[in-house]
Amino acid sequence: MRILFLGDVVGRSGRAAVLETLPKLRERYRADFVVVNGENSAGGFGISEAIFNELLDAGADVVTTGNHVWDQREALVFIERHDRLLRPVNFPAGTPGRGAGLFKAANGMDVLVVNAQGRVFMADLDDPFRAVEQELSACGLKSGTDAILIDFHAEATSEKQAMAHFVDGRATAVIGTHTHVPTADEFVLNGGTAYISDAGMCGDFDSILGMDKEEPIARFLTKIHSRRFAPSMGEATVCGVAIEVDDATGLAKAIAPVRLGGRLSQVEPAFWLDPA
C-alpha cells in the first residue's frame, strides 16, 4: 500500500497549491490513500466546510486537524456531518466530532487514522498516549485494520519521538505536524513504524510559519499585537511524506519526504518513481 500525507495547509496560497497538485500526485505516485492536515486552510486559522469538501474533491481521503480546529466556529457544527474530518482524539469527552476512524483505501485495504494533539507547550488536553493506546487496543494492526497512521499534532520533538517509540511495531506511521517546518529525520523505527518529527506545511515559505512577516516581527520587537496574523500569499511549497507499506504486516517499508514548488529544495520519493 502507498500512503501519501501532506502537512498543514496554510491559507489561500497553500490551499491553491494542494488543490492543483494533489490530483496529479495521486496519479503520479499511484497513491492508495491520502491524508491532508487542513487545520490552517481557512485564512490560516481553522477549516471551513467548503474547504474541507474541496480537499476531498482534490483527492484527500481524510482531513486531520489540530489546535486550530475550532477557529472557524462553524466547524463545531459541520464536523458532526463528516466522518472523514478528524479533530484530536484527546479532546475531552463530549467534544463534537471524532478523533479516529477506519477508512477504505483505493486498493480495498482498511486504514485506521488517529489524530492526536500533544500537551508540551500546548493546551492541556487529555493524555494523548492513553488516547492513542485506546484506539490501537480497539483496532489493532492486522487484527482490525491493514494500516494505522497517526497524525501527532505537537510542539515538542521529544513528545513526538516518545509517541513514535510508544507505538513502534503497532502502527504503520507516526507523522508529526504543527510546527510547519519539514524536518530531516524521516526513518523507519526498529519495530517497523515510519516516523518524521514534522511533515512541514503546504504554504509560502517566504513568511514566518506561513504568515506575512511584518506582524510577527513587530510583535517580537514591541510585544504589541497591532493586527491579526495574515497568511503569506506567495508561491507555496507542498510538503509531506510518502510511506510504502508492507501489505503482509501493515508496517512501513520506507518513508521519504515530498517537497514541490515554492522556495524549498525539491524532492520526491524515489521508491515511487518509475526509473528514467
Rank of each mutant, 00 (worst) to 15 (best):
A16K: 13
P23M: 01
E214P: 00
M109E: 11
I217D: 07
G210P: 00
G140H: 07
L141M: 13
A106M: 01
L56I: 14
L125K: 00
G94F: 10
R228I: 06
F187N: 07
T145L: 04
A276V: 12
G59W: 01
S13T: 13
F121Y: 13
L112Q: 11
S226Y: 10
A194L: 08
F205G: 00
S265N: 04
G203Q: 07
M201T: 15
G66N: 10
L221M: 15
S48R: 11
F91A: 04
R73Q: 11
Q72G: 00
D110P: 08
F45A: 06
G192F: 08
V167R: 09
D206G: 12
L25I: 02
D185C: 10
E49A: 06
A252L: 12
N67D: 14
F152R: 14
V238H: 10
A105R: 11
V245A: 14
P96G: 09
F52K: 12
I243F: 12
L125D: 02
T193E: 08
R259L: 01
F5M: 07
P269N: 09
E215N: 04
A138Q: 10
L189R: 05
D126I: 02
H68G: 05
R219H: 11
G7T: 05
Q266N: 08
L141E: 04
A173V: 13
G99Q: 06
A252F: 14
P275E: 15
V132E: 03
D127L: 05
G38Q: 05
S197H: 07
Q117W: 00
F129I: 03
T21S: 08
A75N: 00
V188P: 08
S13H: 15
L273E: 14
V188Q: 09
H82M: 07
N37M: 14
A236C: 08
G144V: 00
F5A: 13
L141Q: 04
G176M: 08
D32L: 05
I208Q: 10
Y195A: 02
D32K: 11
E49Y: 01
L86T: 11
R263I: 06
F205W: 08
V35Y: 04
G38C: 02
P23Q: 01
N107M: 13
S137W: 06
E39H: 08
V181R: 06
P88D: 01
G203N: 07
F205M: 09
T21Q: 04
L56H: 06
L25N: 01
R81P: 01
E54Q: 15
Q117V: 00
P128M: 04
G240S: 08
R130M: 12
I224R: 13
L209S: 05
G250V: 14
S232Y: 10
E215R: 09
A75S: 15
R81G: 03
A254Q: 13
P182W: 07
I208K: 14
N115S: 12
W70H: 03
H82A: 12
L141W: 03
T179C: 09
V9T: 15
P257H: 11
D71K: 14
E244S: 10
G101E: 02
L85E: 06
A256T: 15
D212N: 09
